[in-house]
Simulated scan of single mutants.
Amino acid sequence: MDEKIPAYLYEKKNSVKTILFTALFALLFINLFQPFGSRDWYPGISDIKYFAFSSLIILTGMLVVVISRVILTACSKKRDVVYWQYALWILCEIVAMAIFYTLFAKFFPKDGIERDISEIFRQSLINTALVLLLPYAITWLYFSWKEKSALLEHIEQEKSGDAHAKTLIAFPDEKGDLKISVMLENLLYIESADNYATIYYLNKSGLSHFLLRNSLKWMEEHLTKETPLVRCHRSYIVNMDKVKILKKIKGEIVLELDAEYTPDLPVSKTYYDSFMSKFSQYSV
């Protein structure tokens, strides 16, 4: 109970969402459940008028929650709020709203009949607890799910980034014999010339290249499915992770790589759609 509550419980945007959802829940609660037999208090009015009247009462009572959440957000900036303090805070909200509805029922009695104030407070306390605790629990679960989903997505992205960085791309020749392997993080692009392909990559001394006998078509079919490699031209396969700038010159798309002494690579019309489809995955 002395553990600090998660930030999503008192963040400003989440507090606004909690207040709005609680108000909506309270409106539905009082109009569907009709606590205290409140619908019988005003038998002569239409459902629309009753809804408007009950809405006014609920929204007025919700001022307690609004004030409470503003204070909670301000306090959380100055010091940590732990679970037992947060539980006590909610209890105070329930009691404060119960007192508000008790006073309302006392000063505006049903058919002018006086009722025992302790009984009114007891019923108000029960119904107010339902009105607040149910939407609070729902929003708490929702915010927790959102935070965990975002955390899992972040972890997956990190794993994906690590997997890309640590992937070793193997390049065999046309006979299947391994000729060279290059870390994906160092691979720049592949250039084709007839039945040969030149692998351009970074090493300690800068830009290097390696020539092997194999077709660009084979590499496109075997190396581009689950990697950032994509064919952009009949003569080029490029590593999307190394594309620094995509620009349009005289109606043609040109790629500038994040490495010195590398030429700008063209994107041909033949491969434009497939290239842009993959490019969109790497341009978030």
Rank of each mutant, 00 (worst) to 15 (best):
D264K: 05
I138R: 00
S192F: 11
L134S: 08
A165P: 08
E3S: 08
T262N: 10
K225C: 09
L152N: 03
R39Y: 09
P135N: 01
F210T: 01
S205A: 12
N203W: 08
E174K: 09
F107N: 09
K12R: 14
A170R: 03
L28H: 08
A150E: 14
L202A: 01
S15K: 04
K278N: 09
K244D: 15
M219V: 10
L27W: 05
S149Y: 00
I58D: 03
Y261S: 01
M240Q: 11
Y10H: 07
I155K: 05
L265P: 09
K148V: 08
A26M: 12
E260D: 07
I237H: 03
L178V: 06
I190T: 03
L211K: 13
V65L: 15
Q157L: 08
T262S: 03
E260Y: 07
N31R: 11
F36N: 06
T128N: 01
V66H: 03
K49R: 12
W218S: 12
N195S: 02
K4Q: 15
G44Y: 01
E174D: 11
T227E: 13
P43K: 00
P109M: 07
L211I: 12
A98Y: 13
L141C: 10
T128V: 15
S124E: 15
K179W: 10
S149K: 02
M240A: 06
F275I: 04
W41T: 11
P263G: 09
L216D: 07
L130V: 13
L212V: 11
E93I: 04
S283H: 15
L130C: 05
G37Y: 04
F143T: 01
M219A: 12
S268E: 11
I90T: 07
E260M: 03
I99G: 01
A170N: 02
L168Y: 00
T22V: 08
H164F: 04
Y50F: 07
Y101R: 00
Y196D: 04
Y200N: 14
M183L: 06
A7F: 11
K242I: 12
D194C: 02
A52Y: 01
L20C: 05
